[in-house]
Amino acid sequence: MDFTRRETLALGAGAVALTVLPFRVNAAAEDAIAAFTGGAAVADGGVNLTAPEIAENGNTVPISVSAEGATAIMLLAAGNPTPGVATYTFGELAGSAAASTRIRLAGTQDVVAVAKMADGSFAQARSTVKVTIGGCGG
């Protein structure tokens, strides 16, 4: 297949666009988000996700999330075999829309938190966690 100069340029531009696009979560994670939001738009900001930059071990990674005014927060590990981690639903006696837990990450990946706000809107935050391989296997 031969490309014209114009086509080659277009391809190059496309490749550049691909590399600069923000990391996209995998299909299963996108499905999980869609199921949670009902397909509504998800804004960035308003969600605080605290995750280590480098996890000392992927088997036990501390993750904290909070979103003022949220009624529920869904936590996803986009690179796990199944992306679901936990969904917190905050009740009338929740002291804050915040929770911490410890999770399993199968490898370096994005952890995503999607918050459902009291007004029905959605917001998200994401954080890349590097999961490393230990010393000589021990």
């Binding site: 230990g134 010393g135 000589c136």
Partner: peptide
């Protein structure tokens, strides 16, 4: 000790 062995801190 104190050095890294791959990603692990000895």
């Amino acid at each position: 000790y104190g050095n890294m062995i791959r990603a692990d801190h000895l």
